[in-house]
């Protein structure tokens, strides 16, 4: 599904990357722990996280994540937004908590990173 569809499903705000909403997202993974993301993440992942400091964006960039959705209304700090613009990583923010965010996307057919063969 496209990032635009994800934005609609999650009723999310776009913090940066309005011009990239047509990118195709094929799988996602969620964690607040960047060490976990670095261990399980795969290039192309949609990262769902509640960690709103700039390490979330640095981590996404390191693993070639396609975009970040911040859950439970979190928004990244200014440094994070600046970095995301530099690296061309779209950032979205949804009011849903982690469990509901994952459930909504999963039920619409978006697989998790662990479902990839």
């Amino acid at each position: 599904m496209t990032l635009k569809e994800i934005k609609e499903i999650l009723r999310a705000d776009v913090i940066t990357g309005e011009d990239k909403l047509d990118i195709e997202i094929t799988f996602a993974g969620g964690s607040d722990l960047m060490s976990d993301v670095l261990a399980f993440g795969k290039p192309g992942i949609l990262l769902l996280t509640g960690l709103s400091n700039s390490q979330s964006v640095r981590t996404a960039n390191i693993i070639d994540a396609k975009a970040i959705v911040y859950v439970r209304g979190k928004r990244p700090d200014d440094e994070g937004v600046k970095l995301a613009k530099e690296h061309g990583i779209p950032l979205l923010s949804t009011k849903f908590m982690m469990y509901a965010t994952c459930g909504l996307l999963f039920s619409q057919g978006l697989p998790g990173v662990s479902d990839l063969s």
Partner: peptide, 30 residues
């Protein structure tokens, strides 16, 4: 924190290191 690793990743990409090694090296150095 993480700035150096981000720069190193850019360098590795630029000089054409195999993308799977770029990711593994970037994760490790981060």
């Amino acid at each position: 924190a993480g700035r150096t690793s981000t720069s190193i990743k850019e360098i590795l990409k630029e000089i054409g290191i195999d993308p799977s090694i770029v990711i593994r090296a970037s994760i490790a150095v981060y």
